[in-house]
Simulated assay, not measured.
Amino acid sequence: MKIVVIGGTGLVGKKLIPLLTQAGHTAVAASPSTGVNSVTGEGLAQALEGADTVVDLTNAPSWGDDEVLEFFRTSAANLGEAEKAAGVTHHLAVSIVNCDQIPDSGYMRAKVAQEREIREAGVPFTILRATQFFEFLAGIADFSTKDGEVHGSTARFQPVAADDVAATLAALVEQPATNGVVELAGPEAGTLASFVRRYLEAKGDTRKVIEDPAAGYFGAQVESLAPAQGSGARIGAISFATWLG
């Protein structure tokens, strides 16, 4: 198959492309740096020519509420139109677990809007909702630091390695579109604060982590960033301890 990975030069894309190539596919990384822009439409038609599957790993360059909403809406709509024109038979996109349950977050609202565009595009699709990546913990800690202390949310948290996200995508491209959602989480759950504490300790960072029910997630109030127990979510193979090591 020819598989075009939109955002293929990013964190997950760089891990996914080799997996697809090793499986015998023709994998193409498409991003603004390669002349393909899903927001302006530049290079989309050429990149998708002959493509069977598109993996959407796009991410907004700005987190402002209006900007991120416009980015995901426009990008998803442009991809849908280009895919229909090219005869693409599977659109596979990465979203976020519980994004539809965190209305305080402009970013989460934008991901919900992206999912809506995908559903309405008329191209068979699979949405992979993943939990937060281990690789995001440094940014979470920095955002949550006040006066030298990290105020960590007590929300349920079940992060996953970016390598497991890539491996799951590589498996899903081999399967028919579900026209629905598949969830992915890491093998261990706890509070967000507990994962941040373990991350900082492993990095030799002496900042104190305070469990704060009001801390939220990037300013948004949240109860859980993990799949519901018994939901049937796929579980990544890489433990947090292994990743830290």
Rank of each mutant, 00 (worst) to 15 (best):
G204I: 05
E211F: 03
A220P: 00
P213Q: 15
I210C: 05
L200I: 11
F195G: 02
D212R: 08
V196A: 06
A193T: 06
A233Q: 09
R198N: 09
T206E: 15
V196C: 05
D205Y: 00
G204Q: 11
I235P: 08
P213L: 15
T206F: 07
V222T: 14
L192F: 12
Q229T: 12
A193R: 13
R197W: 02
A226G: 06
A228Y: 08
A237C: 00
P213D: 12
D205Q: 07
I238K: 08
R198T: 14
L192M: 15
S224M: 04
A237S: 13
I235Y: 04
E188G: 04
A237W: 01
G230V: 12
S239C: 06
D205F: 01
A228L: 11
F218H: 14
L200E: 08
A193F: 11
D212V: 06
T191M: 07
R197K: 15
D205S: 03
D212S: 03
I235V: 15
G232F: 08
G236L: 03
A202R: 13
Q221H: 13
V196L: 09
A193M: 01
R197T: 07
K208H: 13
E201M: 09
Y217A: 04
V209H: 02
T206G: 14
S224Q: 06
L192V: 13
E188L: 01
S231E: 10
E188C: 00
A226S: 09
R197S: 13
D212F: 07
G232C: 05
I235W: 00
A202G: 04
F218W: 09
A193Q: 10
I210P: 12
L225E: 09
F240V: 02
K203I: 02
L225I: 10
A233N: 03
A220E: 02
L200Y: 07
R198Y: 06
D205H: 03
I235M: 11
I235A: 08
P213K: 15
G219Y: 10
D205W: 02
V196P: 01
I210A: 00
R234T: 10
L192R: 11
F195C: 04
R234G: 05
E201F: 02
G230E: 01
Y199M: 11
A226L: 01
K208W: 04
Y217I: 10
V209G: 05
R207A: 02
F240A: 02
D212N: 06
A215F: 14
R207C: 05
G232M: 04
I210G: 06
V196M: 12
I238T: 15
K208D: 14
R207N: 07
E201T: 15
Y217T: 08
F240W: 10
S224R: 09
L225G: 08
R234D: 13
R207W: 09
A226R: 03
T206I: 09
A233F: 02
A220N: 09
S194D: 15
Y199T: 06
E201A: 14
K203H: 11
G232N: 10
G216Y: 10
Y217W: 13
R197N: 14
Y217H: 14
I210H: 12
A202Q: 05
F240C: 02
A220D: 07
A237M: 05
E188R: 04
L192I: 08
V209K: 04
A226W: 07
S194I: 07
A226K: 01
R234H: 11
A214T: 13
F195R: 12
E211K: 01
E201V: 14
G236Q: 06
A233M: 05
V222P: 10
T206N: 14
